[in-house]
Write a protein that binds this DNA or RNA. Structure first.
Length: 344
DNA sequence: AATTGCTCCAACCGCGTCCAA
DNA sequence: CTTGGACGCGGTTGGAGCAAT
């Protein structure tokens, strides 16, 4: 079994990287860039092969990597993308900023796959409605008391929509044929969020313009979109661009607010928005008491269960692109129908 | 306290593709 | 056209860390 030619020219170290090696690699690449990977170890003073350096940099040392566990949004996205793309981890990871293909692959193999198989083994699931209610013990955000959920709006065309912003994330998936034949995640900002339909017009205006700091009411789609596409721009409900300075200010304050409020719970920002949607006392109703609140301290894996339960059982286990095909083998573009109040 | 079993993930391996010579 | 080096990707492995016994 041959090692790569670049690894044969000199005796190379293998196995775990030491902090000293990491430092050497970081110093070299931040100063000179990686250039040709095969020359990096020599120039950086490392007894490694170029391939190992590349892998270490891409999977671990890159400054733009997001560390920590996957958020429910990310998990939902991975599951959905996997049902479409199969084991094309690099393609999946492209839609998860700060995540590597290796990370996504490990997450899938260690967490999701087993749960999918487990669900597959229990074909006699309760009704989807029941399973959703069972699997969505979400912690409500008491600040968002003016969001009123309509339970009937969580079901649409025989499809269970997650009662969270992640459902909109999934609905927002489309297949962009004209561009690159690659999956594009868009329309997130304008995807329907049925849960928000009953916000009063004035609150709604504020949600869209993202300036309702007093109520800490932020558009979940905005947060999602910002996480998925940090460089993207937004329009308000009138189709006008959001003032970048306001956008920056609001988003920054959101992050700061999150950092304060999350001191006890290490969750990604997006996860908090899921908690905006109460479901515990039945959809749309806050929990009744403290013990119920405690019961609602859902961890992320429960959320993954919920996501899995809401998917067709076979799709996420398949490595084919079947979920993009309708029964007559035509590509389904999952274009949501937008409520008029959600913009163009 | 020692041992065993399990999980998770960093790292490795082999293969395919691209491209320049 | 062929060859070989570089790179990227997906599958697999090894071991650190943790829990159970």
């Amino acid at each position: 079994m041959g090692h790569h030619s670049c690894c044969n020219k000199q005796k190379v170290k293998r196995g775990l990287w030491s902090p000293e090696e990491d430092e050497k690699l970081i110093n070299y690449i931040t100063t000179y860039g990686h250039g040709c990977w095969s020359s990096v170890p020599k120039l950086a003073g490392l007894q490694r092969c170029g391939k190992s350096c590349r892998l270490r940099w891409i999977n671990y040392l890159r400054p733009d990597l997001k560390r920590g566990s996957f958020s429910p949004q990310e998990a939902a996205l991975i599951i959905e993308l996997h049902s479409i793309l199969g084991n094309r981890w690099a393609q999946i990871a492209k839609h998860l900023p700060g995540r590597t293909d290796n990370e996504v692959k490990n997450f899938w193999n260690s967490s999701v796959k087993k749960k999918l198989l487990s669900h597959h083994d229990h074909l006699l699931l309760p009704s989807l409605t029941t399973s959703v209610e069972t699997f969505f013990p979400l912690t409500p955000n008491p600040k968002n008391t003016n969001i009123i959920l309509n339970p009937h709006l969580n079901h649409h065309q025989n499809q269970i929509y997650l009662p969270t912003s992640s459902s909109s994330l999934i609905q927002g998936l489309q297949f962009d044929h004209e561009a690159s034949q690659d999956l594009k995640i868009h329309n997130l900002l304008h995807a329907p969020n049925p849960n928000l339909q009953e916000i009063s017009p004035s609150s709604y205006e504020d949600t869209w313009s993202l300036v309702n700091q007093e109520n800490n009411l932020l558009c979940p789609h905005y947060i999602d979109e910002k996480f998925m596409n940090p460089g993207s721009t937004f329009q308000n409900h009138e189709g006008q661009p959001v003032d970048p300075s306001i956008e920056q200010k609001i988003f920054q304050s959101t992050i700061e607010d999150y950092n304060v409020s999350s001191s006890q719970e290490q969750e990604p920002l997006v996860a908090r928005n899921i908690h905006s949607y109460p479901s515990s006392g039945g959809f749309g109703y806050p929990p009744q008491d403290q013990s119920q609140m405690a019961d609602l301290a859902a961890n992320h894996m429960e959320f993954i269960d919920a996501i899995i339960s809401s998917f067709p059982l076979s799709s996420s286990l398949s490595s084919s692109s079947s979920s993009l095909l309708s029964s007559n083998n035509q590509v389904v573009t999952n274009t949501p129908s937008f409520p008029s109040c959600w913009g163009p």
